[in-house]
């Protein structure tokens, strides 16, 4: 759970989300390119944060990529993102 924990901690610090779910989906990609036997390669993040109000889809994702630059350079092979501002629904 080490990678998931650092993802969560960094997102909480950067975005003060009202809602944050970090799911490890690595088991669904076992044997695919980028998968490691020890897992923690494929993640899905669902987050609602006021920081995203008035920000385009692409820029929301870019901000998350920036916050998680170390993870993306390292163990994380794929990061699915669902990023909303409050009131946009989850």
């Amino acid at each position: 759970m080490k990678v998931a924990q650092s993802i969560r901690a960094k997102l909480e610090a950067a975005f003060q989300p009202q809602h944050l779910v970090v799911e490890d989906e690595s088991h669904r990609h076992a044997g695919h390119a980028g998968a490691r036997p020890e897992g923690e390669t494929h993640f899905r993040v669902t987050m609602v944060s006021p920081a995203f109000a008035g920000v385009s889809r692409v820029d929301r994702s870019r901000r998350v990529h920036e916050a998680l630059a170390d993870e993306l350079k390292g163990p994380v092979h794929a990061l699915a993102l669902s990023l909303k501002a409050p009131g946009e629904g989850v």
């Binding site: 889809r57 692409v58 994702s61 990529h65 699915a80 993102l81």
Partner: peptide, 25 residues
Amino acid sequence: ANWPTIPQLYVKGEFVGGCDIVREM
């Protein structure tokens, strides 16, 4: 694109997004 992952979709020279954004749109 200043975008760390593939796939990437471009329409008329403009970056639209990756898989999540394309699906959402």
